[in-house]
Amino acid sequence: MSHTLQMIAAFAAMLFAGAALYVNVAEHPARMALETRSAAQQWAPSYKRATLMQAPLALLSLPSGATAWLLGANILWLAAALLIGSVMPYTLLVVMPVNHRIPEPDRDLSSVETRELLQKWARLHGVRTALSLFASVIDVWQLGGNGVT
């Protein structure tokens, strides 16, 4: 049972990290090559779709890793679970205020402020990417024989 939970935790964390990394290195830079209005218009539906994929992955990896630890796996499973789990409160407390400002009804989507908000969002999303990558590295290292029970 513990090994199955470890596999689930690692797989979900890696999928989350891969998607987050893709956004940081491919999607958002391409979006920012557009003029600001188009970039902001593209950002909104893209973010909504990504949330539908990434939130469940974090919600799957966190309890899987934590439960594996409770069942006797190495403490690093808990550490990785907490790292991927920290993405959720970070998103709600730090990223969401920016998310809500970008599509404000009275916002000039062509403005310098909108472009700055999109750039700020990318930096904040980079933290989510780093947290999920660290969690994934720990999980994969543990699966490599350094903590599998």
Rank of each mutant, 00 (worst) to 15 (best):
M1G: 09
S2G: 09
S2N: 12
M7W: 04
M7N: 08
M7F: 04
A9F: 05
A9D: 01
A10Q: 01
A12S: 13
M14K: 09
L15D: 02
L15S: 06
F16G: 14
F16N: 14
G18N: 00
A19V: 07
A19D: 08
A20W: 01
A20G: 00
L21E: 06
L21F: 12
L21M: 12
Y22D: 09
V23F: 11
V23T: 10
H28A: 11
H28E: 12
P29Y: 03
A30W: 03
R31S: 00
M32V: 03
A33F: 00
A33R: 15
E35G: 12
R37D: 15
R37N: 12
A39E: 03
Q41F: 11
Q42P: 15
Q42H: 15
A44Q: 13
P45V: 02
K48I: 14
K48E: 15
R49I: 09
R49C: 07
A50W: 01
T51I: 09
T51E: 03
T51C: 10
T51H: 13
Q54T: 12
A55R: 14
A55D: 12
A55W: 04
L57D: 11
L57Q: 13
A58H: 08
L59V: 10
L60G: 11
P63N: 06
P63I: 02
P63G: 07
G65F: 02
A66G: 11
A66I: 05
T67F: 09
T67G: 05
A68D: 02
A68S: 07
W69A: 13
L70V: 10
N74H: 08
W77G: 02
W77N: 08
L78K: 05
A79Y: 01
A79N: 00
A80Q: 01
A81F: 07
G85A: 11
S86I: 03
V87W: 09
M88A: 11
P89Y: 00
P89W: 06
Y90A: 07
Y90F: 15
Y90D: 10
Y90I: 08
T91A: 15
T91D: 08
L93R: 04
V95P: 05
M96Q: 14
P97F: 04
N99C: 13
H100L: 15
H100D: 15
P103W: 07
E104Q: 08
E104W: 10
D106H: 11
D106I: 06
D106F: 13
R107I: 04
R107H: 11
L109G: 08
S111E: 12
V112S: 04
V112H: 12
V112T: 12
V112M: 13
L117T: 03
L118C: 10
W121K: 03
A122H: 15
A122D: 06
R123L: 09
L124E: 00
L124F: 06
L124A: 11
H125F: 04
R128D: 11
T129H: 06
A130T: 15
S132A: 15
F134K: 04
F134R: 00
S136I: 01
V137P: 07
D139W: 12
D139Q: 13
W141T: 10
Q142T: 06
Q142P: 08
L143A: 01
L143G: 05
G145S: 05
G147K: 02
G147A: 02
G147E: 02
T149Q: 14
